[in-house]
Amino acid sequence: MKGMKKIIGRPKYLKDVPNHYCPGCGHSTIHRLLAEVIEELDIRDRAICIPPCGCAVLAYDYIDIDMVEAAHGRGTAVATGMKRCLPDRVVFTYQGDGDLAAIGTAELIHSANRGESITTIFVNNGVYGMTGGQMAPTTVVGQKTTTTPKGRNPGVDGPPMKMCEFLAPLDGTVFLARSTVHSPKQIKQTKKYIRQAFESQLRDEGFSMVEILSQCPSNWKLSPVECCGWIEEGMIPQFPLGVYKQRQTEPS
């Protein structure tokens, strides 16, 4: 329309198809942010995503870049193999909490410790989503899941795993940050972190990870709006937001 400027639209590399995510789920927002950053950095030609086992396994149906699906937990090992062969590509894994902090912990820590020049997008919603809401390594103390019907008991189940804090001491990690997608402000912050992580990879600095606290209405058994409240009250106190590590060499 005359005199009006288009200020928002579908990102170029987010396919124009309906997605399978539940209403209020954080994945679709995170997909959108990835597509936007890939467009802004102009890296669609060399970006490769390794989607996980979990709800986001179908990411290749939505984000218009090359992808190779990995076995549950093995994303960063697959990324290592790919990046070593294609050092000028932007290789990133997209992993959930079970994938990354339970079954794939060894692969994550060692890829990070080797300083593999890859990025991990870590979607932390505190439950196993696709399998129906079982306890995850990041389920918070007291949180009810299908396998912790009385709430997570740290004496029996251990306390939640804090992955940014866990990886920060490793020399191979160069960018670690935690944010959420439950508010417009945080969505903008998350996008900024994703961009910083990819930029760090483009400078070949080492391992980068963005941990995103994300809503899972179906398994939390909360409405989308209530989910945002749970992120505020239930998750952020356990998983403080912010940059955990940033070792940046200015681009020459």
């Binding site: 390794i50 190779v68 990995a70 076995a71 093995r74 090992a77 697959v78 990324a79 290592t80 193999g81 790919m82 990046k83 070593r84 062969c85 294609l86 060894a106 692969e107 820590i109 060692h110 080797r114």
Partner: peptide, 26 residues
């Protein structure tokens, strides 16, 4: 050539998977 001593055989075979996906002989 690329040589990586992996953290486990699980990781090794998945590195093989990643490298092979790019078309490398591995």
């Amino acid at each position: 050539r690329t040589f990586v001593q992996s953290e486990s055989e699980l990781a090794a075979i998945n590195m093989v998977y990643g490298a092979s996906a790019t078309g490398a002989r591995v």
